[in-house]
C-alpha cells in the first residue's frame, strides 16, 4: 500500500487513488484522418513495462484531479509526480 503525493492535496494513502493506465497517449486531434491501424494503435496498444513506467493516476476519493506518475513497477517506487500538461522529468 503506497503513499502517493497528490500534487494538489499532499501525501495520501493509495486507497484514495485510481490508476488510469499509461500516460502521454494523446487523443488524436483528427481521428477521421487515421487509418484503422493507426486508430487501433491509439485505442488498444498499451505498454506494460517491468521497470520505470509513466502512468496516469486520479485522486478519485479526494480532489478528483488527474496527474502523472513515474513508477518503477518492479518495486513500486514512485520516482516522480507531476501535473497534467507538465513535461515529464528527464530519465
Amino acid at each position: 500500500m503506497f503513499l502517493i503525493n497528490c500534487p494538489y492535496c499532499g501525501e495520501r494513502d493509495q486507497q484514495e487513488f485510481k490508476a488510469g493506465g499509461e500516460a502521454h497517449i494523446e487523443r488524436p486531434k483528427q481521428p477521421t484522418e487515421l487509418s484503422d491501424d493507426e486508430w487501433a494503435e491509439y485505442l488498444f496498444m498499451r505498454k506494460n513495462i517491468k521497470g520505470v513506467q509513466f502512468e496516469r493516476w486520479n485522486h478519485a476519493h479526494g480532489c478528483r484531479k488527474w496527474f502523472n506518475m513515474v513508477r518503477d513497477t518492479s518495486n513500486d517506487e514512485i520516482k516522480a509526480i507531476y501535473k497534467m500538461g507538465e513535461k515529464p522529468p528527464a530519465q
Binding site: 488510469g20 494523446e26 487523443r27 478519485a60 484531479k65 488527474w66 497534467m84
Partner: peptide
C-alpha cells in the same frame, strides 16, 4: 462523471 472529468482535465483542458 469520472470519465467526463478525465476528458476535461487531460484531453480538453
Amino acid at each position: 462523471l469520472g470519465k467526463l472529468e478525465d476528458y476535461l482535465q487531460t484531453e480538453w483542458p
